[in-house]
């Protein structure tokens, strides 16, 4: 039944696009709201019918996965939630994938944030992922929530030499010295890998500048698509790999699923976003092609 629905929807979308092509070749302008409507309809169709595509990880994502995979049990992993709800659909799946991967490898998890809204999303991860999927892990021994701290790159500049100065206590106001996870942690340089996740300022770039390079800590940023091109130049010397936008997150989820079958049934939001994403991209590409065809036809007419 749903098969027929998919075909009818696709027929409507692409039939509509052809109509617009004919319409605009005739020299009529297309209202921008029609473009919005097409993108909206294409995205909604793919979400409704749950259209999924297979993802194969690229080297730059695989590097991140392999590094976390090869760390010995009990390694220290820091994840920074440097984003707000506006960026959530893109980068939140990355944070959850890193959390799952770290806990299944029995690493120690340190969660912090340089953005105020990041702390609320961190709580969401703890409640929905850690407590539900890993009931055996213990707060303070396996993971700790450091929470948000104001001060942007100033925070990073301090924690690279001394964690306790910036974080005398965790997010629940428990003294950090009474948390077993901090027994052998003095600074951010003691981490075995850091995942700064975000796309604004402060964000992954500040982490590379203030912690990754001076502390020589392996960095694997998870990036909102908008800033991904700005971080690429740091690969492969200053970051070991990176996840760019929802595509990077989907690749990570797929490799995590294929390596650990236990994650086959947990939600993989980035993977399921790739269907709508692809369909929307096809619609946008079609509009670019239509625009170019009419542009060159108009120019030819003007020259003739």
């Amino acid at each position: 039944m749903s098969g027929i629905g998919v075909y009818i929807s696709l027929f409507l979308i692409f039939g509509g696009l052809v109509t617009i092509l004919v319409y605009s070749i005739k020299g009529r302008d297309v209202d921008r709201r029609i473009i919005f409507a097409f993108v909206f309809f294409a995205t909604a169709t793919a979400i409704y019918y749950n259209i999924e595509f297979k993802e194969t990880p690229t080297t730059i994502v695989k590097n991140v996965f392999d590094r976390l995979e090869s760390l010995p049990e009990g390694s220290k992993v820091l994840i920074s939630f440097d984003f707000d709800p506006a960026m959530k659909p893109e980068v939140f799946p990355m944070a959850n994938a890193f959390v799952r991967h770290s806990l299944v490898k029995k690493h120690k998890l340190y969660l912090m944030s340089l953005w105020p809204q990041g702390q609320a999303l961190m709580t969401e991860t703890i409640e929905d992922v850690i407590k539900v999927e890993f009931p055996e892990v213990v707060y303070g021994e396996d993971y700790v929530m450091l929470g948000y701290k104001a001060g942007n790159e100033g925070v990073l500049n301090v924690i690279i030499t001394n964690f306790r100065k910036m974080y005398p206590s965790d997010a629940h106001n428990t003294n950090i010295d009474s948390i077993p996870l901090f027994d052998d942690v003095k600074s951010a340089a003691d981490m075995d890998i850091i995942f700064p996740i975000g796309g604004g300022k402060p964000g992954p770039k500040e982490w590379i500048l203030f912690v990754g390079d001076p502390g020589q800590v392996p960095m694997a940023p998870g990036l909102a698509a908008v800033v991904a091109p700005l971080i690429y130049p740091y690969y492969p010397r200053q970051v070991i790999g990176l996840l760019g936008g929802v595509k990077g997150a989907a690749e990570y989820e797929s490799v995590l699923r294929s390596k650990y079958p236990r994650f086959q049934d947990v939600p993989a939001p980035a993977l399921s976003m790739m269907g709508p994403q692809t369909l929307a991209h096809i619609v946008i590409l079609s509009f670019i092609v239509i625009g170019n065809i009419t542009f060159f036809m108009k120019r030819k007419k003007a020259n003739a």
């Binding site: 979400i47 698509a225 908008v226 936008g245 976003m273 991209h281």
Partner: peptide
């Protein structure tokens, strides 16, 4: 161009996120 493409991808992701919530 690459940067523009990435931006489009990012914006569509946000749309998908909101539509998933609505639907």
């Amino acid at each position: 161009g690459a940067s523009f493409g990435y931006t489009v991808m990012g914006r569509i992701s946000l749309l998908v996120g909101r539509l998933t919530f609505l639907m």
